[in-house]
Nucleic acid binder design. Sequence first.
DNA 1: CTGGATCCTAAAAGATACTG
DNA 2: CAGTATCTTTTAGGATCCAG
Lengths: 136, 136
Amino acid sequence: MSEQSISPRPLTKDETVRAGAAGSCNQHEVLTRLGDKWTIMVMLQLAAVPGQRMRFSALKRKVAGISQRMLTVTLRMLERNGLVIRHYFAEVPLRVEYELSPLGHSLVPMLENFSAWIAANWQDMEDARLQHDREA
Amino acid sequence: MSEQSISPRPLTKDETVRAGAAGSCNQHEVLTRLGDKWTIMVMLQLAAVPGQRMRFSALKRKVAGISQRMLTVTLRMLERNGLVIRHYFAEVPLRVEYELSPLGHSLVPMLENFSAWIAANWQDMEDARLQHDREA
DNA sequence: CTGGATCCTAAAAGATACTG
DNA sequence: CAGTATCTTTTAGGATCCAG
């Protein structure tokens, strides 16, 4: 449906193949751990208060529609992979605070960029989607 | 099991609450579309050849263990949201090339940063995970 | 070669109830 | 408050077959 037939020039096999190359395997590993919606949203929230800690309940309130269970699972996974630190206070009522580790902190610039990108471009995405759906 | 009892100072409710604030809703929308493993991996590959297009089969080869179906689904989604452009050539054999749209291109710096972060930090993550598992 | 259409299973995630 | 445990529903995703 696009441009049909008269192509500019078929890419050679070498041109098409050559890309990412090495490291692809690590990418897969890392993305399996960090590359999901909830993980990114939780990290975005923690990155939004760089030097600060956040309580479990505060995170739950800030991260849109996350369930208690998924927040727990996500935080456990982030802790396991060394990206967040969990501070447990045996008080009444119980209090637990989370903060980014140094490793997690190294992701902050990227998270802020991403957050900014979303704010700046989500409307374009929405428009593109609506137009694409009209054409279909 | 961490520091117990003697806390530094409980965060006030206001400190804990104040974060991300607005835009949270858009984040959720956007991440529902882009925030999954395959989407990020495909974008990483397309970003690795900034000015270039990639054929379906080339993408399939480069993106670790993606199945034909998931690559198709992912590409359709990216096209629908205006991040990639699909070029269809009615030849024999059929040829289809994908490239980043301008909108998709605006994500390249972030994707490159992320890719670099993975290369630089995946070992730290691995170490943290192993140590965490030993302690458990 | 690049998919579309189906079927099917395993994993993810929501809801709910309970506890230190 | 911050979980855990359990149950159920939903979704992701692989396998397979077919087609322009």
